Simulated scan of single mutants.
Amino acid sequence: MTVTYDIHGTGDAGAPTVLLSSGLGGAAAYWRAQIAGLVEAGYRVLAYDQRGTGRSAGALPADYAIAHMAADVIEILDDSHTARCHVVGHALGGLVGLQLALDAPARVASLALVNAWARLSPHTARCFAARLALLHAAGARAYVEAQPLFLYPAAWSAANAALVQDEVDHAFAHFPGTETMLARIGALKAFDVHARLGEIAVPVWVSAARDDLLVPWTSSQELSLGLARATLELAPTGAHAHNVTSPAAFNRGLLAFLAGAASLAPTTTEHAA
């Protein structure tokens, strides 16, 4: 296996399965606020550390792309004897889901895309340029210290200062290395499937937070308008990691979608965080 993954809930490969794909950090643990609720709802859950991160540490190909990440997911599905799954992806993980739906549509039952995009917005490109400049000029410690600024609302970070610092310290202790980080950021910057969204026929739940500093909610709006069977749900607050900062509202929306609540035509709803 290229990557390390965990199975939560039933081990029955025929059970409805949800695969969780994280963002740039790549860690399965990112989804800890969702896993228990999904298992309680009866889902078999696959969560994995992406190639080059965490337990899946290792060198990346020189031409590393989102397509490589989608191929890793296919390897997980094959190894776990999973014929088809619901893919839930956050940011970069959402790109992996989109690529998988294009490359292996028979393996994808639905997509839940969280603060993701079909093509990088100029604003997001500016954010990543600033983060890369910080990495190059000041090193990994400064890079991870700045990370919560892009993930969480300021008030939430202030109220959870110890938790945030623990996350920063953990991220620094497990930093994958500058070369790997550059390759992963390069892959997400190069990703562009805007012209191919019409090829994706599965139901899609597009979830975004209006106060996301890193990825404008309008990127999710663009996604929903380009997909044939998408529902756009907007949280007023919660920022880029709103599944972490507002888990109750997020989990309600996700479970409703997985139960079959996604509509055929793009719509927009608002929920309280």
Rank of each mutant, 00 (worst) to 15 (best):
A162D: 06
I7G: 10
H136F: 05
L188G: 02
G97R: 05
V96G: 02
T4H: 15
R126L: 13
F191M: 07
A65V: 04
L100N: 12
A41N: 12
H86K: 04
A36P: 02
V73Y: 01
T231I: 01
T180F: 06
A112W: 00
R55K: 13
H271S: 14
A140K: 11
D211N: 10
A173M: 03
R141L: 14
A241E: 09
S157D: 02
S246T: 11
A125G: 12
L134G: 02
A116D: 07
D212W: 07
V114G: 00
Y152F: 15
R184P: 06
A59Q: 12
L223P: 01
F172H: 10
D72A: 13
A47G: 11
L197K: 08
S110D: 08
Q99S: 15
T231N: 14
Y30L: 11
P148A: 12
V87A: 15
A272R: 14
V3T: 06
A208Q: 07
A262K: 04
I66R: 07
H86T: 06
L100Y: 01
L100D: 13
A118R: 05
A146Y: 12
A28N: 09
R107V: 04
H174Y: 08
R119Y: 04
T178F: 00
S224G: 09
Q147I: 02
S56G: 08
L111Y: 03
M1E: 07
A116Y: 09
E199G: 03
Y152T: 06
G37V: 03
F128G: 10
A171V: 02
A228D: 10
L120F: 04
S121M: 02
W205T: 04
S80H: 10
A138N: 08
R44N: 06
Y64K: 09
H123G: 12
A235D: 04
L19W: 00
S121D: 11
A28E: 11
T268K: 15
L132P: 00
L24S: 06
E167V: 00
H242R: 08
V244K: 15
A155K: 13
G26S: 05
R32I: 03
I7V: 15
E40L: 06
E222Y: 03
T180N: 14
D169C: 08
V202N: 05
A65D: 09
L255G: 08
L100H: 06
A137W: 04
A109N: 12
A273W: 02
L149Q: 15
T269Y: 09
F150H: 13
Q221L: 12
L134V: 08
T267F: 00
L255K: 10
A265E: 10
S80I: 00
H174I: 01
L151Q: 13
A155R: 11
L98K: 05
S56P: 10
D212T: 03
G226N: 13
D166A: 14
A125H: 05
G26W: 03
S207M: 14
A67K: 11
H170Y: 10
T124L: 12
N243F: 10
A109Q: 11
I74M: 12
A208R: 01
H194Y: 07
